[in-house]
Amino acid sequence: MGLLSKKDAKLITDPFADNNPITIQVLGICSALAITAELKASIVMAISVLFVMGVGNVVISLMRNIIPSKIRIIVQLIVVATLVIIVDQVLKAFAYELSKTLGAFIGLIITNCIIMGRFEAFALANGTWRSFLDGIGNAIGYGVILIIVGFFRELLGSGTLLGFKVLGDPIEKTGVYALGYENNGFMLLAPMALIVVGIIIWVQRTKNPALVEEQ
């Protein structure tokens, strides 16, 4: 990381673990729960958020001195929404297949409070380069949790990863299914996403007791 000073590098590495947007800052939960039944959807969502966060943070940071504070929330929301809609339209025109995969997430990206949260907490008060790094860092921290949750839910729920039958065929009884293993359909339902995130928090805070909350 020769390009980045130590302080700047922290902007990327912090959200990755000790200041993770999902497990510590409690931001962006809705989407983390809604789309993680499948690993592929998790990855697509993580990449889209990475893009929107990076660009959005830069735009807001550039505008930070001219936004009237009274209507800053409206302005922020409109910036995100405009970005997302333009990307959606461009994809629809030039990468139609990809846009169909993404289509379902557009609402979730706009309402993703992680984006608003970082605009408000960081981009409004910091320079462009640092805001960009902050956006990327938080998006990565968010994406990592998404991918972990998606991995376990798809593996235990459908016995597949990215659509490949890694555990054998449940109907023909091959692979581990021959030993009597069954898919846990419950993993696919949204409540299990909450519980999986709960377990991730548990593991994370066991490893780093400094994060444990006061009683």
Partner: peptide, 10 residues
């Protein structure tokens, strides 16, 4: 579909 749950309705 336009937006069924990924991995379930989709």
């Amino acid at each position: 579909h336009a937006g069924e749950t990924a991995g379930l309705g989709s």
